[in-house]
Every structure is written in C-alpha cells, then in structure tokens.
Simulated assay, not measured.
Amino acid sequence: MYANDGFRELDRQECLSLLATAPVGRIVYTRRALPAVLPVNFCLDHDGAVVVRTSADSELASALDGAVVAFEADEVDAAAHSGWSVVAMGLATRVTDPVEHARLLRTGPRSWVPAPQEVFVRIAQELVTGRELVGGRTMYGVLPRS
C-alpha cells in the first residue's frame, strides 16, 4: 500500500471492534465450485469468532460446515467518501456441543427468518484484515458533488 492512497490499515482489535458494530455481513463460500456471496446477520462470540444462525436444512448450513470461508462487513458514507471494510477468513464449523448451542440460543444472533430447526455456524478468524478510507476525495481538496 502506498502511504498517500487515503487508506489506513486496521489492526486486529480495530477490526473486531468495527465488526461488532455491523448489523449485517457477507459470507463468501464455494457453491457448485464457484464463489458465492450471501448477506447474513451475525454476532461476534466472546473469542472473536463470527457466529451465524441459519436453518438446519439450508444449503448455507451444508456448504459452510467444514469449509474455509471469508466473512466481510463494512460501512460506507457515500456523501463523505469515507468508510471501512473488514475481512475475516477461517474455518466454518457447525456448533454441535449441546451446552454451546444452549448458550448461543441465549446470546447468539437472532434469525431474521426463523426456521423450525436452526443451527449455529462459527467462523474461526484465522486471518483478519481491514482498512479505513480516511481522506476520501476531500483529502486532495476535491469536494464531493452535491
């Protein structure tokens, strides 16, 4: 990255703090040998893992279990030409431990589309990267168009 490109690299703690504020993120996974992207609501667990809740018999639950995936969340202010983006990559696994499942029923994300049987999927964050657009177009004295 160039020093004057308007972006600032975020450290792991900044990334986790920003992820915790986002209501929706995107899971990137493989579907029929092609990349697929799906928006989901989520929460961060106590260890920083991303947790999603989905229907037990959904394609998403099957596709994620045991797969390496990416998870992305961001916030953009188009008028101010500013924002941030965080990407977390790691192994996704279905929560099978009954005690952990019960805890996540109390503390985990709420499904926006409830299903008769739901599962939790954890994405361990093996690699977390992020950046923030700090200057936008105003950085060089160019104001955004009205």
Rank of each mutant, 00 (worst) to 15 (best):
residue 1 M to S: 13
residue 1 M to W: 09
residue 2 Y to S: 12
residue 2 Y to H: 15
residue 3 A to S: 12
residue 3 A to F: 12
residue 4 N to Q: 12
residue 5 D to A: 10
residue 6 G to V: 01
residue 6 G to R: 04
residue 6 G to Y: 05
residue 6 G to S: 05
residue 7 F to C: 05
residue 7 F to H: 11
residue 8 R to P: 11
residue 9 E to P: 07
residue 9 E to D: 15
residue 10 L to W: 07
residue 12 R to D: 14
residue 13 Q to D: 15
residue 13 Q to S: 14
residue 14 E to R: 07
residue 14 E to F: 04
residue 17 S to D: 15
residue 18 L to Q: 04
residue 20 A to H: 02
residue 21 T to K: 15
residue 21 T to R: 15
residue 23 P to C: 04
residue 23 P to W: 05
residue 24 V to R: 11
residue 25 G to K: 07
residue 26 R to A: 08
residue 26 R to I: 07
residue 27 I to R: 00
residue 28 V to S: 10
residue 29 Y to R: 03
residue 29 Y to A: 05
residue 31 R to L: 15
residue 33 A to Y: 05
residue 33 A to Q: 12
residue 33 A to K: 07
residue 34 L to C: 04
residue 35 P to G: 09
residue 35 P to V: 03
residue 35 P to I: 04
residue 35 P to H: 00
residue 36 A to M: 06
residue 37 V to G: 08
residue 37 V to E: 00
residue 37 V to S: 12
residue 38 L to C: 13
residue 38 L to F: 12
residue 40 V to Y: 07
residue 45 D to E: 13
residue 45 D to H: 08
residue 46 H to M: 02
residue 46 H to T: 15
residue 47 D to M: 06
residue 48 G to E: 08
residue 48 G to A: 08
residue 49 A to P: 02
residue 49 A to I: 03
residue 50 V to D: 01
residue 52 V to C: 02
residue 52 V to N: 02
residue 54 T to M: 06
residue 56 A to G: 12
residue 56 A to E: 09
residue 57 D to Y: 02
residue 57 D to H: 14
residue 57 D to I: 07
residue 57 D to C: 00
residue 59 E to Y: 02
residue 59 E to S: 04
residue 59 E to V: 09
residue 62 S to A: 15
residue 63 A to N: 11
residue 63 A to F: 01
residue 64 L to E: 05
residue 69 V to Y: 04
residue 69 V to T: 03
residue 71 F to A: 01
residue 72 E to Y: 08
residue 72 E to T: 15
residue 72 E to Q: 15
residue 72 E to F: 09
residue 73 A to Q: 02
residue 73 A to W: 01
residue 74 D to I: 03
residue 75 E to K: 01
residue 76 V to I: 14
residue 81 H to S: 00
residue 81 H to Q: 01
residue 82 S to T: 09
residue 82 S to N: 00
residue 83 G to T: 02
residue 84 W to Q: 07
residue 88 A to S: 12
residue 88 A to I: 13
residue 89 M to S: 13
residue 90 G to V: 11
residue 91 L to Y: 03
residue 92 A to N: 04
residue 93 T to V: 14
residue 93 T to D: 14
residue 94 R to K: 14
residue 94 R to A: 11
residue 98 P to I: 05
residue 102 A to S: 13
residue 103 R to F: 08
residue 106 R to G: 09
residue 106 R to K: 12
residue 107 T to P: 04
residue 108 G to D: 10
residue 108 G to W: 12
residue 110 R to E: 12
residue 110 R to T: 14
residue 113 V to G: 00
residue 113 V to N: 11
residue 113 V to D: 09
residue 113 V to I: 11
residue 114 P to D: 05
residue 115 A to I: 08
residue 115 A to G: 09
residue 115 A to W: 03
residue 115 A to C: 10
residue 115 A to D: 07
residue 116 P to H: 10
residue 117 Q to Y: 10
residue 117 Q to I: 08
residue 117 Q to G: 12
residue 118 E to K: 01
residue 118 E to P: 08
residue 119 V to F: 02
residue 119 V to C: 05
residue 119 V to Y: 05
residue 120 F to V: 02
residue 126 E to C: 05
residue 128 V to H: 00
residue 128 V to D: 01
residue 128 V to A: 01
residue 129 T to D: 05
residue 129 T to Q: 09
residue 129 T to G: 08
residue 129 T to H: 02
residue 130 G to M: 02
residue 131 R to P: 12
residue 134 V to W: 09
residue 135 G to N: 11
residue 136 G to S: 02
residue 136 G to W: 00
residue 137 R to G: 12
residue 139 M to W: 07
residue 141 G to T: 00
residue 146 S to A: 13
